[in-house]
Structures are given as C-alpha cells and as structure tokens.
C-alpha cells in the first residue's frame, strides 16, 4: 500500500442527489488499496454518516481522506451553523432534524454516535456559527 494518500470531497448543503458519493468513492479507493474489508465497512459507515450530517445540517462542507502508513484519517469540516451543545448531539436518539428530513429516514439521532463507535479515535469540535470539525482515526 502507498505510504500516503490524500483525497478531498466537497459536500453541498441539502444536496441529497449526490449525498453518499464521497463515501462510495472512499470505500472504492480503500478496496483498491487492499484495506481489510471489516475496516472498510467501519470507515464507510462513519464517512456516510459524516457526509449526510454535512448535507442535512450544515451550510456545506468537505471531507478529507488521508491514509498515512498504518492509520486512516477521515476529517470533516463544515461552514456552519455549528452545534450548540455537542454533548447532547452525541446522545443516541437526539436530533434537530425536521419532519421532512425524518420522512426520508434520516434524523434518527444516531449519526454522531455511529461515527464514534466505528472509529478507533473520534474528536469533535464545534463553534456557533462558524461550524463543526470532526476527526476520525482508523487503525489499519
């Protein structure tokens, strides 16, 4: 496997027609690089949740994939509006998603907890109204 590998994906706000594309590309790339399938599954779930969170809740943002030796980093950054109470947002079942989003099957309040469960290390920082940054590390 290459020692370092880096990709960036832009995610549009409310862009549901292409939401999921970044995660699919990440998954495909890791498969081509020969990463273990159980690790790929965890990264695919976590990056999909991150991607959907940006599409649903933010004003847009980006996802960076970085493979560095024996660790894979998935980092996201959005352009606001930020999360008022991060502890609450990390609680399973808690969501600010509206009716229309819930009807599509999103807004279960499991996105952030799912990401944390999937990643070996999970860091989140958020500021209102600047935005939210998430860093997830996966050991290969």
């Amino acid at each position: 496997m290459a020692d370092t590998y880096e990709m960036t994906f832009n995610v549009g706000s409310r862009d549901f027609s292409s939401a999921g594309d970044a995660s699919r590309t990440i998954k495909r790339t890791l498969k081509q690089l020969g990463v273990d399938s159980s690790i790929i599954r965890r990264i695919a779930i976590a990056s999909y949740e991150a991607e959907m969170n940006i599409a649903i809740h933010s004003l847009g943002g980006k996802i960076d994939l970085l493979i560095d030796g024996d660790r894979i980093f998935v980092e996201t950054e959005d352009y606001g509006p930020g999360i008022e109470n991060v502890d609450l947002a990390m609680t399973e079942g808690w969501s600010t998603a509206g009716h229309e989003i819930r009807e599509m099957g999103f807004g279960a309040g499991m996105g952030l907890p799912n990401m944390k469960k999937c990643a070996d290390e999970f860091y989140i920082e958020s500021e209102v109204p600047t935005g939210t940054k998430i860093k997830m590390i996966f050991n290969i």
Binding site: F16, A19, G20, S23, Y48, M104, G105
Partner: peptide, 14 residues
C-alpha cells in the same frame, strides 16, 4: 419503504 436515492448509497456501502 424508503424510495429516495440515498437507499442506493446505503445498499452499496453495506
């Protein structure tokens, strides 16, 4: 019962 495009992303990822 969901029918929008994101079900395909979920199916592919899993």
């Amino acid at each position: 019962v969901q029918t929008h495009m994101n079900i395909i992303a979920v199916a592919v990822l899993l």
